[in-house]
Design a protein around this nucleic acid. Structure first.
Lengths: 338, 338
DNA sequence: ATCGATTGGGTAATCGATTACCCGGTTTTC
DNA sequence: GAAAACCGGGTAATCGATTACCCAATCGAT
């Protein structure tokens, strides 16, 4: 426990400077020295102390990532994509979950900053309550938001164009013949929740279809199931339900079917995200695909560019989503209306 | 960016020693000094540098956790449980995914050790290939394995009694009248995979029921679906299938039903883990519950006790699992056989 | 042969927080 | 009243790796 570069230097019979040079290769050393250092390293099982290196270099080779929760498959896929993106860059990822609580989120940001991460990627859990902690962090270190963002636009962001996404979904079900529509989403605590609802309402209004009251809860399977039950209880079903994410959609489909409602014949359902198991459910879910790999790549790229407390106006990179029609909505063949 | 304790000391008009003492409270200072340091901290927005502290103290206040993948809900629930367990202990968690690759796993362990984590919690992805990296890590830092473990028993472990778990599952379906049974699991690359299969085979043999060939792939929903298809293709269905985890079970149920097979009437299915959505699927899944909170608590407790490279024989804490009967298996009422 | 450039190696400063050690003053104790 | 104990504060060593700076030796060019 605790073999240092001094031990290596002593064992190799050279100075610490030579040992360090032999290891880093940042200055030439004679083959003789290189050889002896290499041998000493192998013999002693030396492993450089990243803490000491970080202190000296003022850089840790890590970036922090904070997401609302790792129980939600959308966030885990984006985390995995970021990990893949960072794979061979020599930086590694410190992952934290805020558990959908702005307090926990602020605490996590504090400890990541105390550990001097070189950058931060965050999906802020609350559009309002997350503001101070996120802006403060952005002042101290390069930061990019991904998917969710805080109001006021004080920090860079990359994500999908939420409004465009639900517009695709809503127009699709309306083109499929829906005359009355509803929305199942989350309470309006995040940017995604707000934009997806507002985009839906705007599109429905423009198309002149009847809009039944929205069902707002959480981004979970459980809420989807509950939303389905409530829909059944009202006694009045819409022709289509647009959901704020796939979890809700899957839950909703399940409870509608349990209630004897046919999907898509009686009610069409469209999700959002296109997480892995959207294909695997029964019936396979029509949904709006988020290009997760692209978002992750873009976030990492952007992070490399931004500087802490940069006065330059924040960038916002909105990637266009794509509709994936599977079997919970009617395919659109010309003139199927009614 | 970078206000240090020297800046604070200067602003407060005291020495760094006094500033440090005022902050840590590890030696008394006069109220006067405390007051002025507090004011300086607030004014300058000082935040202690955890890196420097770690270097000086030779302890980082972090523990590393390595799991095979965060796409698998079982691992995310256990990660969340460990996080909760660590919540107020002042240590925080560095989470890594090995992506089911022993190479990636070894690399992650290396970087966690380089960052001088105070301890490690790991679920080794491969019972054989993970051995050297895990043993090496255990020699350098307190380490406990959770759920999966490496062969040879060189490191402490806490998990569920896998064999007892599948025994419960198998006896349950047999008591429910199954005369022929099969097992859908994962290739035998992890301890869990092996023990769950062997426990199943032993129980089935003891009960004298017919054992159809096991289906071994991955611990995923996709594999469950595929396994169901293969079962349908053979033309010969068992009365019951015991699955190595819930993902497989859910996939299997789905594809059996798609093939017109009734669950549990034609084929009973039992899962393993009891992850959140086992309740949410259709029909709700009978499964073996892993007491995740208890495992996490036990792992953290044990980690506090083990010392690096401790010659004391490794402890193995096996928690008894519990069978949860829902609707993919017939409830056992006395004498329902056949 | 001599001067400047180059090369490779060593010494010690540096990063920021903690704390061993020292010192002067006050309080306690016999 | 003198010695001992105590108290609060300051200076500088420490953790481990990197590197600025210095120095001696060698090489090439004139």
């Amino acid at each position: 426990m605790g073999v240092t570069i001094h031990d290596v230097a002593r064992a190799a019979g050279v100075s610490v400077a030579s040992a360090s040079r032999a290891l880093s290769g940042r200055r030439r050393v004679t083959p003789e020295v290189a050889e002896r250092v290499a041998r000493a390293v192998a013999e002693l099982g030396y492993q450089p102390n990243a803490i000491a290196k970080a202190l000296r270099d003022q850089t840790t080779g890590t970036i922090g990532m904070v997401v609302p929760g790792i129980g939600n498959p959308f966030f885990t896929t984006i985390v995995e994509a970021v990990e893949r993106e960072l794979q061979n860059s020599g930086t590694d990822l410190l992952l934290c979950a805020s558990q959908y609580s702005p307090q926990v989120e602020a605490r996590r940001l504090e400890t990541l900053l105390a550990r001097r991460v070189d950058g931060l990627i965050i999906s802020p859990c609350d559009i309002e309550a997350s503001v101070p902690a996120v802006l403060d962090a952005a002042r101290r270190v390069p930061l990019v938001q991904v998917d969710r963002y805080i109001e006021g636009g004080g920090a860079d962001w990359v994500g999908v164009d939420d409004e465009a996404g639900v517009t695709l979904a809503a127009e699709h079900v309306i083109a499929g013949g829906a005359r009355s529509v509803s929305f199942a989403g989350s309470r309006l605590v995040s940017s995604s929740a707000r934009l997806r609802l507002s985009g839906f309402e705007r599109t429905a209004a423009r198309a002149g279809v009847e809009v039944l009251p929205a069902l707002l809860g959480e981004f979970t399977l459980e809420w989807g199931v509950e939303a389905g039950r409530r829909l059944l209880d009202t006694g009045r079903l819409p022709d289509a339900v647009v959901c704020a994410n796939d979890e809700i959609a899957v839950g909703l489909v399940r409870s509608l079917r349990l209630g004897g409602v046919r999907v898509p014949e009686d009610v069409a359902v469209v999700g959002f995200d296109d997480v892995g198991h959207a294909t695997m459910c029964d019936p396979p879910l029509s949904t709006v695909r988020q290009p997760v790999e692209e978002m992750a790549a873009e976030a990492v790229r952007l992070l490399g560019q931004v500087k802490a407390g940069d006065p330059r106006p924040a960038q916002r990179i909105a990637i266009a989503p794509r509709l994936v029609v599977r079997q919970t909505s009617r395919p659109v063949t010309a003139g199927v209306a009614e």
